[in-house]
């Protein structure tokens, strides 16, 4: 028997923690759903921010001067004059006076064509385009412009769209906060689920844990087993969750009415942020899962002896 010693079995060592299909599959499903929802929330928050950014930049990079018709003044001439004054202001890129025809065109959707008497006095507009940078904080220039127009005796008012922009920003901010809160809540829920599952699997495998302990395993060795296992679970469910989130996002952006009020929907933009977010999701899910499993197991083990 001693002459020809049997060779040790080839291949690697067996996994110390046996896989547990009955528990792992539902857990995988729950984790994947949580990752999916978290990705949607993150994409939504990002989309809302992005959309609001576009809109407010557009709104804030322009002013509108409205010239009301007043008896004894030539409104058309006033628009020309107002445009001239505006062009002379610092930070103004262009000023375009709008004619009576333009004003009528704006009203057509509501009143129909040719329903207005020709002599009906209409307020006329001047579109003022601001230099991109100047837009944000040039409130002085706006009051300045207003003062200059007033000095000319025109019944003019300058609107910088700030009320609109504020409302849009507020809505976008709310959507963004909501998205991020959801993200935080989902991460918390995922961590709790994993901690719960790790504890359950620790309790279910006391035979393994006891055997390992009696063989002199350190707590961190055992915690490491669970950490690795739950890292892999997190990564796998993260991959699936992120993939589905990407599909939904692409689906939303190809569906009709892309510029609708549902601007908080995750719209696929294929920009680096989205790609990084979805690419990082499996890793983040893995890390969250590994960390909460490790902490749960370590705290459980500490309670012994």
């Amino acid at each position: 028997m001693h002459d020809d010693l049997p060779r040790p079995p080839s291949g690697g060592s067996g996994r110390l923690l046996p896989p547990d299909a009955g528990r792992d599959r539902p857990l995988f499903l729950v984790a994947a759903i949580l990752v999916f929802l978290a990705c949607i929330a993150a994409l939504g928050a990002r989309g809302a921010w992005h959309q609001a950014q576009n809109w407010t930049t557009e709104l804030e990079s322009s002013l509108t001067i409205q010239i009301r018709p007043v008896d004894g003044r030539d409104t058309e001439a006033d628009t020309q004059r107002a445009a001239e004054i505006a062009r002379g202001m610092p930070g103004v890129q262009a000023a375009t006076p709008r004619t009576r025809e333009d004003a009528l065109a704006l009203l057509t959707p509501w009143l129909g064509e040719g329903n207005l008497p020709d002599d009906l006095p209409l307020p006329l507009m001047v579109d003022v385009e601001l230099e991109p940078r100047a837009a944000r904080d040039d409130r002085v220039a706006i009051s300045d412009l207003q003062a200059r127009l007033d000095a000319e005796g025109m019944a003019a008012s300058v609107d910088d769209h700030s009320r609109w922009a504020r409302a849009v920003r507020r809505a976008a901010g709310t959507a963004q906060t909501l998205g991020l809160s959801l993200l935080a809540l989902l991460t918390g829920a995922a961590a709790a689920v994993i901690a719960f599952a790790a504890r359950a699997s620790l309790a279910a495998r006391t035979d393994v844990i006891d055997a390992l302990h009696l063989c002199g395993a350190e707590d961190r060795f055992i915690a490491g087993l669970f950490q690795r296992r739950f890292f892999m679970l997190g990564v796998k469910s993260g991959l699936v969750g992120a993939l589905f989130a990407a599909l939904v996002s692409i689906g939303v952006s190809f569906s009709q009415s892309p510029a609708d009020m549902a601007f908080f929907l995750p719209r696929w933009a294929a920009n680096p942020f989205e790609l990084i977010l979805l690419g990082a999701a499996p890793l983040l899910a893995g890390l969250t899962s590994a960390l909460s499993a490790r902490l749960a197991v370590a705290s459980d083990l500490r309670g012994r002896w």
């Binding site: 110390l16 035979d207 393994v208 055997a211 009696l214 063989c215 002199g216 707590d219 500490r302 002896w305």
Partner: peptide
């Protein structure tokens, strides 16, 4: 607690009910 493993490695135990891990090979 963190000094237990070191002492346990110096102790070998044969259990009455063996306590083998059934999912691992004999080796």
């Amino acid at each position: 607690r963190d000094e237990l493993p070191d002492l346990r490695r110096r102790i070998g135990v044969v259990f009455q009910e063996f306590r083998l891990l059934n999912h691992l090979s004999v080796f």
